[in-house]
Amino acid sequence: MKSTRFLAWLAIAVGAIYFIVPLIGTFEFSLRMRRGEYSFDAYHSVFSDIQFRSTFGFSMLMALFTIIFGMLLVVPTAYWVRLRLPKLRPVIEFITLLPLVIPAIVIVFGYLRLYNSSSFLPLTNSTSGTNMLLVFSYMTLSLPYMYRAVDTAMRMIDVATLTEAAESLGAKWPTIMFRCIFPNVMSGVLSGAFITFAIVMGEFTMAALLNRPAFGPYLQLVGANKAYEPSALAIIAFAITWLSMGLLQLVSRFQKTAPVKA
């Protein structure tokens, strides 16, 4: 047993070194901008870069649209499948998992060929059309996570009873959807939203190939041209991921205790 515990701590130590050293290394590097002393100059330079602000804002906006439209698509579908088409669940689940199977670069390659200027739906013709396509591509990327988060939350509530109760009180379907179902799966909606946010903020492939001024391609550009700013940006990106995941954990903890409180 003693040797087991030793081995366990050894594994943890090796893992911790592997995970923590790059973070320390990145942070240390980001402080090196001023010669001979540590400073936050690299962060200062990043935050005062106008491109940083505009691309960051653009990606935030795209993330917001992705979350809103993604949830408007996923929640009613998951609800409807649970209520009326339970036999179809495996098919829907299979479709939602496809974005994990088909690489993102392949999906966006398909978009560029299918929605170019000579196609039936020439989305890439205009800026707003391309932005729409970007949001659709992010919805596709986050589909596996959104659907699973919402479906898990929906498993905990009895959709059939809720629907019948609402119907017998005279509710129409928008009321059922937005005042019964959505609030009850809020924990799932929020977890899906946070992970989507983390994915969209750093996403590179889709935005780069659709030529949109998003945060991911900006990161790549800075990485190719500057020395210390990339490390500062990596630390900022890590903080964003950490924040999203932290909020996600908080929400899922709330989800576990919710039925007890009710």
Binding site: P22, F204, G223, L233, A234, A237, S244
Partner: peptide, 13 residues
């Protein structure tokens, strides 16, 4: 979930 471009920066640093 920490992949993509920033991860490359971290390892370069």
């Amino acid at each position: 979930n920490f992949a993509g471009v920033p991860l490359a920066f971290a390892f370069i640093a």
